[in-house]
Design a protein around this nucleic acid. Structure first.
Lengths: 223, 223, 223, 223
DNA sequence: CATGAATGAGAGTTCATTCAT
DNA sequence: TATGAATGAACTCTCATTCAT
């Protein structure tokens, strides 16, 4: 029996009860972690709950104690992961916007790019984003949720900030006001490139992001 | 006759002969068209051949007269559609490169953008590209083929052209030499936006493409 | 088109009409021959009419011009092949029985054995017999037909002849009267051995048959 | 509950617990038994797993919990049944060979014949043997396994024993040394006869076996 | 809470049979 | 007569979901 096998013997103080409680509390996250692995690897349809269970060291039926069905597991997984992203996003944008003398937009852009490179591209979150991109069209609810909670907010905040930069002369054109998407474009390219072509031709994501920002801000530098 | 019974009644002018001929001649394309619809809607795994058959007004078994299996159908569909794209691509790039006094790179970029907007974004090909992006990671062969035939060639040609533009002073920085990806980035964003968020907030793809090009070429205009 | 491809150009005298007629007349036997090949190789269920057609250089539909369905083809094939066997059988038995001073039973047995070795074991007919043995239980009609036309007749004739041999002192015991099967037993063993174990350990069928006869007739010789 | 709903109501004494235990414990053998029935009736190809499942009072999918696929089910069925036969065989042969003053070969032959009549001809094992005979040619692995484990061993042991019988004068000729097959021949005939012709003309297998042995040992008796 | 054996609908695939040509 | 594209029922195998334990 795998599940029990994974319960390593603990110190004597860890009673069976404690063990139970600790595990019970964590079952959900074990399952979510395993689900992320499997969904990332195979996508929604091709993922077998059997494999998720195995990876989570849990019986198949256990999944149904925590999630209504496969789709719920999937959606809750993505929502759970989007949360922190929203948090990060708001934090950064707030940092750049709320003070009277805010940091320059360009500086802000660099920070967002760094954040993206460090917190997304190099991590499991990259897979999350890719899952949203690949499965989104098939889960309208998800796409809507994602648009409402992340996309529209993020672009909105950036747009507002860009507007101010224009009026204050930091930006000479209103391109970024009209198309804040341009700041995201290289990020998207990076995610897709990483998962499809990186083995043929590695991509320096950080440099790519910097290049786009520098271009957007009318000046060129080497990284 | 069962088969015909299940087909909708045609106009009286469509004789049995005509019907046969018409059908026999391009069952294959009927099936490919239906497959494109279904695969676009549901992705590879979630697509049922039953539905493809129904949509193509064909029996399930008929599919197997033209394609070895589901995967073959999928791959041949994509390859068949990639072909023309490669052709178009080469034509445009050739047109911009082979003459002694070639067209300016910026001009070339506009043309590629136009091509993209007209031949891809507004057509079924958009779904093809999206399928490649979303299913690519699960079909390594496909990703490799796509990299070899489209991506590396396209980027390579563009890179070469950009190098020349730099040496001739048309481009002031070598950013585009290092990251020709930037010319593609807004196209990618467009494809993904169209299929996920366009109903919430329509995107003017043409303007987006133009904006990026203008930025890349150091000058801003209104569309 | 395969069928026509297989029609080698003939001398000028062979008009299309002649060709047609000749082929038409033979289609049936072409199909039967091909069917024998395929059924022998794969058994009834596992044989595909497609392969039969291909082997016969005939379109699939053509088979249905000559045979009602797969089962008919199978049954008619076997019946067609049993015919000659019955003929041979009757001839030999008649030769041994009808004259006033008939040939000794042992002599007769040798002849039957030779016939078997030459006409069955070494030929396609071996496969026919094996097909009857292997598919018989699933085609009661066939088993019955085979019993009535071949088995009961053959054993009956042999039994009658053996009875006479006993009364005339040629045979000392009535074993062969009670169990004429014993004369057939080594033949059966041979057929099965040939198709299953011969590649591991070849069997000298002729010698085996002779050994059994010699034993049955109370005397032993080397072959 | 669907699953249990589809099972026939049992006697009141059969508690749910009992049911589960009984079923859980030997689902495998239920399936094997059902498989034997169906394969015997229709052969490998023509057998539908649906029918096996129905006969085993089990859902179709359950079969796949215990067997990889149809072929595995088939092979494991046969191997499982061959095991005991090998055991019996070795026992008998050992009993006849290992002592200083062994039992006469003829006696041994009688015993083997009895064993065959009681343990094979009158039981399900007869069908097993028939399956091996009929499907063997299409499952080379099976034929090889059967040859190696049963046929070559059985014939080898018998041959060795016969050689000794010759040197000790029990047998006057070396026929059985050269063709131990002859001792098996009537058994084969019996199996085939039983499954094809017994309803037209019953065969006294025991007497047939005895007759052949008596003939082989040069002396005739009535059964 | 947790299990995992059991379920059965549903998917891809095959192939005997038909029929317009 | 002959063709072979087309059909669709039937098959094997998978896997999300349930539930007795």
């Amino acid at each position: 029996m795998k599940p029990s096998a994974s319960r390593k013997p603990r110190a004597i103080t860890g009673s069976a009860q404690t063990k139970r409680a600790a595990q019970g509390a964590d079952r959900r996250s074990q399952i979510l972690a395993a689900a992320l692995d499997e969904f990332s690897l195979h996508g929604f349809e091709a993922t077998r709950l059997d494999d998720v269970a195995k990876r989570a060291h849990v019986a198949k039926g256990t999944i149904y104690l925590y999630f209504k069905d496969k789709e719920s597991l999937f959606q809750e997984l993505l929502r759970a992961q989007i949360g922190p992203v929203i948090g990060m996003l708001e934090e950064v944008l707030a940092g750049g916007a709320s003070v009277t003398k805010p940091m320059p937009l360009r500086e802000l852009a660099y920070r967002v790019a760094d954040l993206f490179v460090e917190q997304v591209i190099g991590t499991r979150r990259r897979d999350i984003v890719r899952l949203i991109l690949t499965e989104g069209p098939r889960f309208p609810k998800l796409a809507e949720f994602y648009y409402r909670e992340v996309v529209s907010r993020g672009l909105g905040a950036f747009r507002a900030r860009a507007k101010r930069a224009v009026s204050e002369g930091e930006l000479k054109s209103d391109t970024l006001v009209r198309f804040p998407h341009l700041i995201v474009a290289p990020a998207l390219v990076s995610i897709i490139w990483k998962s499809m072509f990186d083995k043929f031709e590695p991509l320096d994501v950080k440099a790519l992001m910097k290049a786009q920002i520098d271009i957007l801000f009318d000046k060129e530098e080497r990284s």
